[in-house]
Nucleic acid binder design. Structure first.
Length: 123
DNA sequence: GATGTGACGACTG
DNA sequence: CCAGTCGCCACAT
């Protein structure tokens, strides 16, 4: 079929928040990913804060939200908060060390290869 | 629109 | 390292 500009190109359309959740679900056990990187992989550069918004709204227990951390390697919650303690425990369950509220990004950050992304991202 | 609020991130001292 | 500042962007008021 020849291209007709009157018909829109058919692409897999997922809403931004859905794409964020999709990316977060790809983070393997034992690895973490900063908010900004999640946004990048979701095709939303510069929208790190939107990642936290989307995660907060998704109360789906299937989303490994605890694997998303700040770019500094620190957990994003205040150390005295309940969520901080929960996230710390979930990360330890993943076999990820959390010391002083921080994880070792050089060893524990997810670094997917291009092929994995091409095969995993439906957009 | 204007304004305020974040589970952010880059920069600075 | 850290703490503060500022830019950023989606959302709620």
């Amino acid at each position: 079929m020849t291209y007709n500009h009157t018909m829109p190109i058919q692409t897999q359309q997922l809403q931004p928040a859905q794409r964020i959740i999709h990316v977060v679900k790809l983070i393997p056990q034992g690895k973490v990913l900063p908010y900004g990187k999640v946004a990048d992989l979701a095709g939303l550069p510069g929208r790190a804060r939107y990642v936290s918004t989307a995660l907060k709204q998704s109360k789906d227990g299937q989303v490994p939200w605890h694997r998303v951390i700040s770019a500094s390697g620190k957990l994003a919650f205040p150390p005295d908060s309940a969520l901080f303690r929960i996230q710390t425990e979930l990360l330890w369950n993943d076999n990820v060390e959390v010391n002083q509220g921080k994880v070792n990004l050089s060893t524990d950050m997810w670094q997917p290869d291009i092929a994995t992304l091409v095969l995993s991202l439906p957009f």
